[in-house]
Amino acid sequence: MIDFASLTMTDIIRLQNQLQQELTRRFERPLLLMFSDIVGSTPYFARFGDAAGRQLQQLHFDVLGQCIAPVEGRIVDTSGDGAFCVFPSADLAVQGVVAFQVQLGRENAARARQHQLQVRIGLHWGRVLTDGVAVSGDAVNLCARVAASGEPDEIRMTRDVFQELGRLQRLSCRALGGVSLKGVAQPVPLLALQWRDESRFPRHLLVEETKEELVLPAQDIVTFGRLAEHDGVRANDVVLGHPDPERARQISRWHFELRRAPDGLRLRNLSDSLTEVDGVPVPKGQEAVMVAGGCIRVAGALTLRLLGPARRSEDDGESTMMFRSTNLL
């Protein structure tokens, strides 16, 4: 037993050094850290109540746990609508979080639009203190900030994670440049994992009449139509128009949806007006498979083409000339 009352200041400093060395030797190790966060949870709770909000949170935790367990991941903690997880390696973590996002897409396919679950994810590789249960350290705080900076459905990572990945995984990453994170003095270089195959899940649309481009909102159902609002609520995510008022009126108020199904992007026609995919009419209520390069003809007024990564322009900004994107998130 140490008699602390008899220790000199020098003795205490030496003891602190010894304890710090022992703490580091026994409990410090590198881990892949992951934070997930539900997008739009606060307005969801306000609109649908605590019971529905808690059910959405539980779905998040249950699907996450099922997807990361096979790749040696574990949930360390849950707080509010977020989860903190760790993995032994970056490659295993990427496998787990991609499986999680894919499974969420399957879950959302069976849920009403307003009850769909979208999650942003942040990854960081760093040294932490852990006894096999608790995990702590500055790296944990940085990882949480990375997740909070993400877009819906996005998987963001630090360069420390990127450097731990294998070659094939690195090829799926896109640099975002320096990103300002809350509580961090300098911008942090981040990357986004392009976890969807953009040949089956294109993210960009081109209006061929004007060569204007649109980035699709990051959600599993995106609605297109002439109507902007209905009873004070947004009617469409993408509001379609035309400089000629007569041609604009040919577009239905709710014309079609693009849905991210597990196997790819699908168009569902909502209108009695003509909607064609690659020159083939799609009856109202029916679906058509969409791929990069596919052409959507809207009521004979607009021609929209889905762009793959090789054909889109360098500018990802939404067009404001003929349509505007109203991302519900």
Rank of each mutant, 00 (worst) to 15 (best):
S89P: 09
A69E: 15
D77K: 15
F84K: 11
V76I: 15
A90V: 05
R74C: 03
V97F: 01
S89H: 13
H60N: 11
G82N: 07
A93P: 00
V71E: 04
H60V: 11
V94H: 01
L92W: 00
P88S: 05
E107N: 02
Q101D: 11
F100Y: 15
V102I: 07
G82P: 04
V63W: 02
A69T: 14
G105W: 05
S79D: 09
V97K: 01
C67W: 00
V97C: 08
T78E: 05
G65T: 09
E72K: 09
V86G: 01
A90Q: 10
D77H: 12
A110W: 01
Q57M: 14
G96Y: 06
G73A: 06
F100M: 07
A69K: 14
R74M: 03
L92Q: 14
D77M: 01
I75A: 05
A99S: 14
E72A: 09
D81Y: 12
H60M: 07
F61A: 09
G82M: 04
R111G: 08
A90I: 07
D77S: 12
G73F: 09
S89Y: 10
L104Y: 06
E72D: 13
V76Q: 02
A110H: 12
Q95W: 02
A90F: 07
G96P: 06
D91T: 10
F84P: 04
G73M: 04
Q57G: 01
F100T: 09
A110Y: 00
V63F: 08
L59S: 12
L104I: 13
A69L: 12
A69M: 08
V86A: 08
C67Y: 00
E107K: 05
V63S: 09
G80K: 10
L56M: 14
A109Y: 07
Q103Y: 00
D62T: 15
Q103M: 10
A83L: 03
A90G: 14
L104M: 11
F100S: 11
L92E: 13
N108I: 02
V94W: 01
Q66L: 11
Q58I: 13
V63R: 07
A83F: 05
R74Q: 13
R74H: 10
G105R: 15
S89M: 12
P70M: 09
C85D: 07
L56A: 15
V97M: 11
F87Q: 05
L59D: 13
Q103S: 12
C85I: 12
A93S: 04
V94N: 00
V76H: 06
V86R: 03
